[in-house]
Nucleic acid binder design. Sequence first.
DNA 1: CTGTTAGCGCGTTCAG
DNA 2: CTGAACGCGCTAACAG
Lengths: 353, 353
Amino acid sequence: MSRIRIKDIAQMADVSVGTVDRVLHGRSGVSEASRKRVEEILKQLDYQPNMYASALASNKQYTYACLLPQHEASEYWTDIEAGIREATLAYSDFNIQADVTHYDPYDYHSFEQASQQIVEKQPDGVLLAPTAPQYTCPFVEQLNQLHIPYIYIDSNIQEQPALSFFGQHSHQSGFFAARMLMLLAGKNATEIAIFRKINEGVVGSNQQERREIGFREYMERHHPTCHIWELDLHAKRDTEDTQMLDDFFKAHPTLHNGITFNSKAYIIGEYLHKRGIADFNLMGYDLLKRNVECLKGGTISFLIAQQPTLQGFNGIKTLCDHLILKKEINRINFMPIDLLTRENIEFYYKPIN
Amino acid sequence: MSRIRIKDIAQMADVSVGTVDRVLHGRSGVSEASRKRVEEILKQLDYQPNMYASALASNKQYTYACLLPQHEASEYWTDIEAGIREATLAYSDFNIQADVTHYDPYDYHSFEQASQQIVEKQPDGVLLAPTAPQYTCPFVEQLNQLHIPYIYIDSNIQEQPALSFFGQHSHQSGFFAARMLMLLAGKNATEIAIFRKINEGVVGSNQQERREIGFREYMERHHPTCHIWELDLHAKRDTEDTQMLDDFFKAHPTLHNGITFNSKAYIIGEYLHKRGIADFNLMGYDLLKRNVECLKGGTISFLIAQQPTLQGFNGIKTLCDHLILKKEINRINFMPIDLLTRENIEFYYKPIN
DNA sequence: CTGTTAGCGCGTTCAG
DNA sequence: CTGAACGCGCTAACAG
């Protein structure tokens, strides 16, 4: 039983393929009678167009613009970009092209500038990692006016919903992290630590803040008496880390559990290794190479992952699904909150880069 | 910069598209000179055919045969079948069709019979959940002779490698499970329990056995003094479960931790709920609805998942990638070993069924 | 308002 | 051994 084709519909409705095509695409120039008849049959037979043939015939070029924060190699965003590249390869037969540009996450002007360039280029779709809402919204409003679909990655902007969002539920992931850390800490733990990396009082991303809020909510609810210490390392002065950590650990000799909500747990992990501290349970985020090495080496107990590569891949895939294959799109896609340990890391999704 | 087409190659090599097509498919009827020239240019330009156009032109029907164990609704295999259906839908434009047949996992003759029917039908590809090697091998050897590619799902047969395998590394997942259970149990736990479902001495699947071996390996290495109790419930006499559990828990009043390696942890979980036992840490496998309810209710602490839906989906996808899109295939695909708790279950992949 | 037709990139004849 | 021509399902331009 072969698939129904336009030709079949045309025959049954006693019109030509041209007419069927017109009603399929809602174009004008069809009499009410014909339109009715064709739509009837379309529904009745549940016609599904062959989107590959369609894409082939329309023979269009699709250009996507991707806007991500600047970053160093082997960071979280590297994996996202790898996913973007993988997807453009996987869908290369659709004549797609993805141009990645970067903005400085600590300089809002940089975001505005980059976003203006994208607007001028008039791409067919946009994939962006939003910065603060007040800077993101003006940009996506322009995209709305130009009817350019856009996708949020990593972090969502509730006020201006995108075609689709891919990212983790940060709050819940912090909540989960607290559960797991306290499992490591044991019932009678009385103190834990939060390590941050801060630049001039700015944490750098909403994700980190939301994770910490979720974390504290769990602590408040289940371990209200457990004290939470904080250590703020400088985001741009790595050389001071060791000294600050030395001071911190000297000041808290009975502390045995801690967590970071950014992706730089390896800073603490490598410090623990250097100082030979073996009785400290450390948790962190994201499978950076250095984090994974700490995990395997035992200085990091748990890492929470959020599949950045898949986020990038799905972002591009979703643009294709929407623009080319005309599929229905899920607007909100929370990534799973995955717990990695030295025992299961080996079988987790391999990063591609 | 548009993609290179056959026509372009033909022009550059000063031959016709027919000739290029012949060398592309290694068909005969091309002079050495032409073949050399064309191959040269092919390499040089790194020609990548448009597989969608190719599939469209070849206009073939692909029929896949799927062979899975019989099962009841809402079991592990239900999710696998959902993945199969999802994939046939996703690739319906390629004119594919997947026929699922079942065998009785407790009756080897049933497997042979079903496999013979598949051989007679001569499908284009096969997706099967292997039973014991001595019964699986004769089948896949016939497939080999007929050059029909086959894919293993859930469990691998090392002796007869398939085109591809999707499943979890059971041994390591048991190893991981032990780590997590002992984390729940705490440092001074002296005893834990393994719950089984057994039919006439047969566990039912290799997976379960391998998980237990991995589990015991971890215990041996890290908790050699911890005693491991065992309770074998009858696989086909569910009505006796409660009585046996009553006896077991009465006999072990200080026991607070246990695990099942099959997907029926809910039997224990629902028992704990019924008896109001709240100080027992239970682990199990697979996100059956009843398991998930126990997890949310708190009678199951952790579940280990292995994405059965994705396994089914990827099995079909891989057959398409191989047969239609001529892509390179990964032969071994271990699924991640995912830990689910009541805190992160909400954001795990939704089952489709 | 409607039917016809020429492609899209590729596979497969069928003459020569 | 090779090129030309037609068709896959669909789009879009064109003619009526």
